[in-house]
Nucleic acid binder design. Structure first.
Lengths: 109, 109
DNA sequence: TACTATGGTAAGTATAAACTTACCGGAAGG
DNA sequence: CCTTCCGGTAAGTTTATACTTACCATAGTA
């Protein structure tokens, strides 16, 4: 069993709807835990636990301001996703090209 | 509770490690269900169920060849993810800009 | 020193979902 | 036909995890 890479943790974190909602709220700027939990249909501790997972995936970062913990998105996460996307896309394209060439060989026979 | 969008289904689908493994296998070209299941530590029906979810998310597509069902990645899914990424990035940037301007106003007071 | 905020964590529950075995129907070859 | 591949689906179990309440620590304030 291979260890979980950064991208794995990102996808695991974003795999939960509530966690995506939390992440989306942070898109508009830094928020405290209570501000995030406000208007959401889960309790504050639940939000706190989700924040922990998101932070573990490197999707968000914290800045401590007294007793308030201000959470915000970590732009590097977007970079990670984009790189994964590019790599995947390249792999798929080369596979398509290889398959096309294989078809071509069949035609020549 | 809003209905699940395409991106939601994509993230839900890619939220599972086994499903990511299946999707990664398809990157190298089209495969039958048995080929996908081969060498994996889950049973063939499990793979079949995962394929259903991936298909529901629009990540893969099927081409039926007799009794064999050949699965392959749906390139449009990559597009969906990329668009989501771009949109998210834009939103975050404007939020950053707004926050910066707010800071500026504070300084001017 | 209280008193009131903040938020993280532990323990337990409850729900979701991943997995297995067993079964079924369709396609190809004898 | 009969046999043998193929793969989807149902039923049930088991495991993971999202959630709640309760509790604790820290920071600011009267």
């Amino acid at each position: 069993m291979p260890i979980a890479t950064r991208v794995d943790r990102v996808f695991d974190a974003l795999g939960d709807p509530t966690r995506r909602a939390v992440f989306r709220r942070l898109r508009k700027g830094n928020r405290s835990v209570r501000e995030i939990a406000e208007g959401m249909n889960v309790s504050r501790p639940a939000v706190s636990q989700h924040l922990k997972v998101l932070k573990g995936a490197g999707l968000i970062a914290v800045r401590i301001d007294g007793a308030r913990h201000l959470y915000g998105v970590d732009p590097s996460a977007i970079e990670v996703l984009r790189n994964w996307l590019d790599g995947f896309w390249d792999g798929t394209l080369t596979a398509f090209k290889a398959a096309a060439e294989e078809e071509q060989k069949k035609m020549e026979r």
